[in-house]
């Protein structure tokens, strides 16, 4: 692609348009509230609590995705079976379903009118209006991002490496933990980042299942509905800033480790 060619300039222009499209509303929102407003907001216990709740439920969702999604990603990467395409489409379903529908669906299963809900009720597990419910919703919406990222990662590791390991006497489990997993850790980390990012920003599905306890997006919306933009923007500023920092740190950690290996 030569620098003076029109093809090059068209590409650059589109790139710039997209950058502006993303950054302009965000910068507007970040600079709209006054500094004093922003400082006041973080002193509000409700705000701190809801941002912390957002972070920690997203983290739990990423953890569950990691535990249950990794084996599934491995199977999808390594094997071919009848119905594999169907399974892959099912994994992608949460992305396609409208968010409130996700919340409604989860509530319907969790209520006493459903046999699973009855079991939950008897055992004392509460989904509606609870942290458990929020984590269930966030895991639901975050899983596809995790599974797809990690599946890609596993696909990029030659199965021959695993074959050699087994020929040297290692069982499948040992091979996975000594060879496959260490080689895939960057994709796993990326999967965790993508899953958490998706989870932290979820609103429509969570608000149906749990209004209280309030995650940050619900708090922002409640404040917007009740008192307007100026009251809700500072919370958004804090949430976006904290998330950006968290993800930047994670990305830097992976970059540095990547270079040294």
């Amino acid at each position: 692609m030569k620098v003076k060619e029109p093809f090059f300039w068209v590409n650059i222009s589109c790139g710039i348009i997209i950058m502006v499209f993303i950054l302009l509303p965000l910068l507007e929102m970040l600079t709209a509230p006054s500094l004093s407003m922003v400082k006041e907001t973080i002193k509000d216990k409700d705000v701190v609590r809801s941002i912390w709740l957002s972070i920690y439920t997203a983290g739990l969702a990423a953890l569950f995705s990691f535990i249950f999604g990794t084996p599934l990603a491995y199977i999808l990467a390594r094997t071919n079976f009848v119905g594999k395409r169907l399974v892959e489409s099912i994994v992608d379903l949460p992305i396609v379903i409208p968010h409130p529908v996700v919340g409604i669906a989860i509530l319907s299963v969790a209520g006493k009118n459903h046999w699973i809900g009855e079991i939950f009720s008897d055992v004392g597990i509460r989904i509606m209006g609870s942290v458990t419910g929020i984590v269930v919703v966030l895991t639901f919406v975050g899983l596809p991002f995790y599974v797809n990222a990690v599946k890609s990662g596993f696909e990029n590791i030659s199965p021959r490496l695993e074959n050699v390991s087994r020929s040297l006497g290692a069982s499948m489990t040992s091979t996975f933990f000594r060879i496959t997993f260490p080689l895939a850790w960057r994709s796993i980390l990326i999967g965790i980042i993508m899953c958490s990012a998706r989870a932290i920003s979820e609103f429509g599905a969570v608000v149906v299942v749990a209004y209280h306890p309030m995650i940050a997006p619900v708090l922002i919306y409640e404040r917007y509905e009740a008192y307007g933009l100026s009251y809700s923007q500072p919370v958004a500023v804090w949430l976006v800033s904290i998330c950006l920092i968290l993800f930047l740190v994670l990305r830097i950690l992976t970059l540095r480790k990547g270079k040294s290996s």
Partner: peptide
Amino acid sequence: RPKENIRPKSVELISLLQSGNM
């Protein structure tokens, strides 16, 4: 009646009743 049982609109409570969550 813990906070978690409050919803912004009263009609939301209907679906919670119907699904057995309340």
